[in-house]
Amino acid sequence: MKEILVLCPHGVDGGLLSKAYALSEGNLRVLVLEGEEQTAEGYGAKYIHTIKTTPPDEAAFAGWLAEKIQSWGSTIVLAPATIAMRNIMPMLAWKLNAGLTADCTALDMAGEDLLQTRPAFGNSLMASIRSLSTIQMATVRPGTFRPVEQKANEPEIIPESGPAETGKVRELSFTEFAGGKPLSQADVIIAGGMGVGSKEGFEKLAKLASHLGAGLAASRSAVDAGYAPFRCQVGVTGVTVCPRLYIAVGISGAVQHLAGMSGSEKVIAINSDPKAPIFGYADYGYVGDWETIIDRLLHLEEETL
C-alpha cells in the first residue's frame, strides 16, 4: 500500500494517525514535535520525523516542508484541519503543485487514489473529491476518527533541524482563552441560544461546563445579543463541532446552527417550545424550563465535589 505522511507539528492527532495507519496498511510516516515520538509510535508510525519547535513564519515552514516531502518521496500528505495547518497546507500544496481538499470528514483509498469526502455549505452537501496531481493532499477535521492504538512497530526516529528562523514573523504574546479546551476538541459541549435569555444565564451554563470539563458554545443570535463571545459561535459562520454529546439549551435550531453541530454523536435539546425545530434533530428532547434542569445538574455536580 502507498505510504501516507501525516503532519502533526502542533500536537499528535491520534484519530488521524489511526486512519492513516489503516489506509496505508501500516506504511505511516509522521512529522511531530520532539517529545511526542512515543505517542506517534503508539499509533503505529513507521518513520517519525521530529522538530523542536514550530516557527511563527508559516510561509517559511511550508517552504521547508515542501523540500522535505520531496526528499521523502511522499505522495499522500494529510494534516489535521487546525487553524495553523489550514494556513500551512495551502502554501505547501501550491509549492508541491498538488491538489488539496479542506476539512475532510471521510477518507478512503481506491487503488492509488485517495478519496476525500467533505461537507460543503454547512453540512448540507457532501462532496467526494479526487486529486488530479501526483501528490494528493487533504486536511481532516479534528475529532473525525477514533484513535486506535497499535502495537509498537519499532519505528525509525529521525530528528530534523527544522526551518531556519526568518525573523519576518514574530510572536509577541499569546493570550489563552479562559475556559479550557477548544470547542473542536471537547467531548461534551453545552450550547446556549436566545432561550437562555441573558448573559447571567450563560454564566450558569459556563459554570456547569467548567464543572463537567465541557466546552461552552452559542448560537449566532445569542452571540449577536452579546450573551457569549464570537469564538463560542457554532454554525455556518462559526465553528463546526462533532463532540460525543451536544446539549442544546434554549436553541431553536436554525439551519445555519444545525450545520455546525449535526455531526455530534448524541444530541440533547432542552427548550420550552415543544415545536422548536431543534427537537427534530435531537436524540433526546426535554420540553420545559432550561434553568430548572441546569440548576439541578449544577446542584448535583457541586454535591459530588
Binding site: 509577541l172 489563552e176 482563552f177
Partner: peptide, 8 residues
C-alpha cells in the same frame, strides 16, 4: 483554537 496570538 485556544487563544489569541499577537504577531508582528
Amino acid at each position: 483554537e485556544n487563544g489569541v496570538q499577537e504577531l508582528e
